[in-house]
């Protein structure tokens, strides 16, 4: 069967969930060959093998951390040349998309970004995407070269599929271009202990109605009772109440959890673009006319300062 290159997103060897989802999709169209780069790359092999990677190509060099994007492009290109895959799949993070796009130019291939599903087709893999704030669903394919496709988190289940996962060192020599943009310092984000927003099964978001940074504690308490990630609307982020890294919407993260709880969010197009594909949507808003209620499976018209704490208590007591 044809080999499919899968770019691995990992933190010091700990593989992030979207990569395991990519392996599920890659197995639909061929045999996954994983490419893991940077510190801890070889440590990814065991878990990648358990999820279907027949091979894991690894490379580590200081350039991966010291320079932006391009060293990873060159390593992925080296893997592409070594394997001659039928497709290249990359997680749809900001960096993942940039890596994929530059690789596509280099190998003369078309690129599809932000796929939410992938299946085999007569003319190559067919990608499903959401368009226009998720009001349309399109099916597309790459018509020139080797398909390069980036896939959003939560697009496929994680499935156990034991395979060899044999580690092979990848030889990479960097060009002059690789060191064009230096990373002069890096400040890791402080961990909140909550799930990653784009990967979470449940997201609890607050908006303008939360009315102040200090009030986000109410949203966080509900999120913690459910083991959820916390999101915020653009209005809440622009007001400085919550960090931009938690923004859900067109210019923030796009999420597709099993359950999305919107509190004090009116549901402007900008926000809907980032959450409309959630499986179940629940909203709490004072304004019965808020557009968010057009999307919900269950809505409560009421004051979030009454409803959310009561819900949190109820969740806690039911969970014991």
């Amino acid at each position: 069967m044809a080999e499919i290159l899968v770019y691995v997103d990992h933190v010091d060897g700990a593989v992030r969930k979207p990569t395991l989802e990519l392996l599920t999709l890659a197995r639909r169209i061929g045999d996954p060959v994983a490419v893991a780069l940077g510190n801890g790359a070889a440590d990814t092999a065991a878990v990648l093998g358990e999820h279907g990677a027949v091979k894991v190509l690894t490379a580590d060099a200081p350039e991966f951390a010291d320079y932006l994007v391009v060293p990873k492009v060159e390593a992925l290109q080296a893997a592409y040349e070594a394997v001659s895959p039928a497709a290249v799949l990359v997680p749809s993070s900001a960096e993942g998309k940039e890596i994929a796009a530059r690789l596509a130019v280099r190998i003369g291939s078309g690129i599809i970004t932000d796929a939410v599903d992938l299946e085999a087709g007569d003319e190559g893999p067919v990608a499903t995407q959401s368009a226009f704030a998720a009001s349309f669903t399109t099916k597309s394919r790459v018509s020139r070269g080797t398909p390069v496709i980036t896939v959003k988190p939560n697009s496929a289940p994680v499935e156990a599929a034991p395979a060899a996962g044999a580690v092979e060192a990848l030889t990479v020599s960097f060009s002059e271009k690789a060191t064009g943009t230096k990373v002069t310092s890096r400040t890791p984000r402080e961990s909140t202990g909550r799930p990653e927003l784009t990967e979470a099964a449940i997201v609890v978001s607050g908006g303008r109605g939360v009315n102040g940074a200090e009030n986000f504690a109410i949203i966080e308490a509900l999120a913690d009772s459910l083991g959820a990630a916390v999101g915020a609307s653009r209005a809440a982020v622009d007001a400085g109440w919550y960090p931009h890294s938690n923004q859900v919407g067109q210019t923030g993260k796009s999420v597709s959890p099993q359950l999305y709880i919107a509190s004090g969010i009116s549901g402007a197009i900008q926000h809907r673009a980032g959450m409309q594909t959630s499986k179940t949507i629940v909203a709490i808003n004072k304004d019965a006319e808020a557009p968010i209620f057009d999307l919900v499976d269950y809505g409560v018209v009421g004051d979030l300062f009454d409803v959310v704490p009561q819900l949190t208590e109820e969740v806690k007591s039911r969970k014991g």
Partner: peptide, 16 residues
């Protein structure tokens, strides 16, 4: 179209 309820004091519990 989903279910919309008005909070009459039990909204949080209904949602739960």
């Amino acid at each position: 179209a989903g279910t919309i309820v008005k909070d009459e004091g039990e909204g949080g519990k209904q949602l739960a």
